[in-house]
Design a protein around this nucleic acid. Sequence first.
DNA 1: CTGAAAGCGCTTACAG
DNA 2: CTGAAAGCGCTTACAG
Lengths: 362, 362
Amino acid sequence: MARGGKKTTNTAETLPANTRALGGRAKITINDIARLANVSKKTVSRVINESPLVRQETREKVKAIIAEHGYAPDPQARALAFRRSFLVGMIYDNPSPQYVVNMQRGILDVLADTSFQLVLHPCERSEATFKQKIHTFVSQQKPLGVILPPSVSEDDTLAEMFEELGCEYVRIASVELDAPSRMVRTHDAEGAAQAARHLASLGHEKIAHIHGPKTFRSAHERMAGFKAGLKEHGLSLRKKWTVEGAYTFDSGVQCAEKLIYSDARPTAIFTGNDEMAVGAYQAVRKAGLRVPDDISVVGFDDTPMAARVWPPMTTVRLPIREMGQAAASLLLKEPVEKAGSELVSFTPEIVVRESAASPAKS
Amino acid sequence: MARGGKKTTNTAETLPANTRALGGRAKITINDIARLANVSKKTVSRVINESPLVRQETREKVKAIIAEHGYAPDPQARALAFRRSFLVGMIYDNPSPQYVVNMQRGILDVLADTSFQLVLHPCERSEATFKQKIHTFVSQQKPLGVILPPSVSEDDTLAEMFEELGCEYVRIASVELDAPSRMVRTHDAEGAAQAARHLASLGHEKIAHIHGPKTFRSAHERMAGFKAGLKEHGLSLRKKWTVEGAYTFDSGVQCAEKLIYSDARPTAIFTGNDEMAVGAYQAVRKAGLRVPDDISVVGFDDTPMAARVWPPMTTVRLPIREMGQAAASLLLKEPVEKAGSELVSFTPEIVVRESAASPAKS
DNA sequence: CTGAAAGCGCTTACAG
DNA sequence: CTGAAAGCGCTTACAG
């Protein structure tokens, strides 16, 4: 048995002092495993990285010793040698906390049993240093990949930057912006069309829409789908009933108030997301009116909040957590496996609760 | 000028091929800075790490060259040499998404302009592998430190584990569990007492409390404070009006229904957190009753949701984001600086909105 | 105050 | 299928 370390002058007693971690017991390394298995560290490395170039027998022997000693390779050392860390970044500017937390959960579901960690990188597209900060983040941390929910996902120049930096990415968006292996697509237009059909079939004609910011592609998609749905019923979205919000609660309140206090008050409002829908609820109530008796409200996303407000909100469900899972799965798969596979996509579906009813006869 | 690299046989033209990152331009390293500044790499290292053992003149020269070339040391290489990464972990089991997202924001506020990254580590205290997973996370990733919101923060054996692993930690809790340098303390009892005083002064006598799970110290603190507040007004919390929830919306609905359909219906409910308060709203409405006309509801936390429900909720505000900031600041400060400083603490304050009113005369 | 040597724990590139 | 050498980009430990 080759028991000699590289420093043959060190006795077994003097070695541990060098190898003890801060306050911990001596940490086992690839060298220990190699010595115990009577192979080179390179072979251990091959086993760790699942290289096919290892004899079955050798592989099993090494694996057994790894398991026996509970050895796990050091992520920092691997990162340095690989020039790539074991981190997955989530880069986001979405203002809805529910959206953010659900997506995190989805990603974490997939990362849970891997050696990858989720690192958060919030940002502001309006900041001048927006891209530079992301560039610094990626070139410093060298994550395996990044996951981009809207609206960050919609920025093509950002995608090019990741490409140049050799960083994998998955874009979650309502438009097919990239190769299938880099996309999780949501059919927002179809979801919005369902909302339109629902309101139209309840008998509404005075229908308003509070859409998200123009900088979000989803805002355009949802509006377009909504218009298409109305058209099927011979209706159209009037300009005076089309208001731009910011996907935030406060903007929902303000936009809904604009509609409520206009000369021609609509009987139904479809909002670009649930946050704004809850804002609309607030405005309706402040005005002494009721949902849905006086004004019907339909949201988008089906965040947990939608079922918790009163009346429970009719909204279009986007499976955000599952989308996060899908994005993380795409990132972790080998390029070979996902090549040729079709696009991963999700079609939202309307969840009918109690915030939309037939308009009062007036 | 010493222009020779270590491989003097390489010409300037052949070097870049070795030093190019995946798809990127040649990356500048500590060796380049050392060569350009005409000092050893060790001296550059000293400047990076702000060692006082560098002559002012030398320091400035090196700093200028670092700035000129936009050099930033490689975090993975530093982590390997330091045996400590540039990550900050947030280890949490709090079921409230709003709480989680607000705390993340607070932490990120502080980490934003540093070289530290926030890594998420959700967990389940009920799982058998709970501690083992955290142990693996910490010993693998070697974060600079971890931030522990309740209820993870309340586990003393966990704190000991971090100590043994040589990992810094900050515990956010409603009880003084640790040294001031490792604690962000919240005076939950005082906040709950304010809720009690408020309800008592409105004239309520039949007052119920839906508290959080017994595994959360905050649940005990809030209940104790609430009882103390009631006592000041000659009131006491009756056992039949004391129900244990799980800090979740659903448990709030169930517990409130138990109270509503009991023989003796209370006129006011104080819940251990806002999630459960919103659940109580739901139960009240399902029963055909109104908040606050039939039953007053007071929450705890003042998450964004509290102001968005109808009627806007009276609740006890805990500055969660600021608590996250405080915890991150504690973690990043040098041990010397924070030693001797007093305990960082936050006292919650009641926010009076519209969900609590005087009970109807019956 | 400064530097040359050795090392952190892995992988790449090369050779057999 | 396997291994010895060199290297990833930093810091520690030691010497001056």
